[in-house]
Deep mutational scan, measured.
Amino acid sequence: MASQGTKRSYEQMETDGERQNATEIRASVGKMIDGIGRFYIQMCTELKLSDYEGRLIQNSLTIERMVLSAFDERRNKYLEEHPSAGKDPKKTGGPIYKRVDRKWMRELVLYDKEEIRRIWRQANNGDDATAGLTHMMIWHSNLNDTTYQRTRALVRTGMDPRMCSLMQGSTLPRRSGAAGAAVKGVGTMVMELIRMIKRGINDRNFWRGENGRKTRSAYERMCNILKGKFQTAAQRAMMDQVRESRNPGNAEIEDLIFLARSALILRGSVAHKSCLPACVYGPAVASGYDFEKEGYSLVGIDPFKLLQNSQVYSLIRPNENPAHKSQLVWMACNSAAFEDLRVLSFIRGTKVSPRGKLSTRGVQIASNENMDAMESSTLELRSRYWAIRTRSGGNTNQQRASAGQISVQPAFSVQRNLPFDKPTIMAAFTGNTEGRTSDMRAEIIRMMEGAKPEEMSFQGRGVFELSDERAANPIVPSFDMSNEGSYFFGDNAEEYDN
Rank of each mutant, 00 (worst) to 15 (best):
Q4F: 00
Q4K: 02
S9D: 10
E11N: 10
E14A: 06
E14M: 07
E14N: 14
D16A: 14
G17N: 03
N21V: 15
A27Y: 03
G30D: 09
K31F: 09
M32S: 13
G35Y: 10
I36R: 02
G37A: 01
R38I: 04
F39M: 03
I41F: 14
Y52M: 09
E53N: 04
E53Q: 03
G54L: 13
L61M: 02
T62G: 01
M66Y: 10
L68E: 04
R75L: 05
N76D: 08
E81K: 01
E81V: 00
S84N: 09
S84Q: 01
K87P: 03
K87M: 15
D88H: 12
P89L: 01
P89F: 01
T92M: 13
T92G: 08
G94Q: 10
Y97F: 14
R99P: 03
V100D: 02
R102H: 15
K103D: 03
W104I: 10
V109W: 03
D112M: 09
K113A: 10
K113I: 04
I116W: 08
I119N: 08
D128H: 03
A131I: 00
T134R: 07
M137D: 10
I138D: 09
W139V: 09
S141G: 00
N142G: 06
L143R: 09
N144S: 13
T146E: 14
Q149R: 12
R150F: 09
T151S: 03
L154F: 14
V155A: 07
T157S: 14
G158L: 01
M159P: 02
P161D: 01
R162D: 06
S165D: 01
L166S: 13
M167L: 12
Q168M: 04
G169T: 03
P173M: 07
R174M: 02
R175K: 05
R175M: 05
A178F: 10
A179C: 08
A179I: 04
G180N: 13
A182H: 14
V183F: 02
G185S: 00
G187L: 04
V190S: 00
M191P: 02
R195H: 15
G200V: 12
F206N: 07
W207M: 07
G212P: 03
I225R: 12
L226D: 11
L226E: 06
G228Q: 07
G228F: 08
F230I: 08
Q231E: 14
T232K: 01
A233I: 03
Q235C: 04
M238K: 07
M239Y: 02
Q241K: 05
Q241G: 08
E244C: 08
N247S: 06
P248A: 01
A251M: 07
D255N: 15
D255K: 11
L256Q: 09
I257S: 15
A260Y: 10
A260R: 08
A260H: 13
R261Q: 13
R261K: 09
R261T: 08
L264R: 07
R267L: 08
H272V: 13
K273P: 09
S274N: 06
P277W: 10
C279T: 05
V280K: 12
A284H: 13
A286G: 00
G288A: 15
F291Y: 06
F291N: 08
E292T: 12
K293H: 14
E294P: 07
Y296F: 13
Y296W: 12
Y296G: 13
S297N: 15
P303C: 07
L306K: 08
L306F: 06
Q311G: 00
V312Q: 04
I316H: 14
N319L: 02
P322S: 08
P322H: 12
H324N: 02
K325Q: 07
Q327Y: 13
V329P: 15
W330K: 10
M331A: 02
A332W: 11
C333I: 08
C333S: 02
S335V: 10
E339L: 03
R342P: 03
R342F: 04
F346W: 04
S353G: 09
R355E: 07
K357Y: 11
K357E: 15
S359V: 00
S359K: 15
I365A: 08
N368W: 12
D372F: 12
D372H: 12
D372T: 12
A373Y: 04
A373C: 01
M374I: 05
L379P: 14
L379I: 02
R382P: 05
S383W: 10
S383G: 04
S383C: 15
R384Q: 14
R384D: 11
Y385S: 01
Y385V: 03
W386A: 15
T390N: 01
G393K: 10
G393T: 05
R400Q: 02
A401V: 05
S402L: 05
S402D: 02
G404E: 00
G404F: 07
P410R: 06
V414A: 04
Q415D: 02
P419S: 12
P419F: 04
P423T: 02
P423S: 04
P423G: 14
T424S: 02
F429S: 08
F429E: 03
F429R: 05
G431Q: 02
S438E: 09
S438M: 03
I444H: 09
I444E: 12
I444N: 15
M447S: 01
M447Q: 02
K452L: 00
E455N: 14
F458A: 10
G462H: 10
S467I: 15
S467R: 00
E469K: 08
F479P: 15
D480C: 00
M481H: 02
S482Q: 10
N483M: 08
N483W: 12
S486F: 12
Y487G: 11
F488Y: 12
G490P: 11
A493Y: 10
E494R: 13
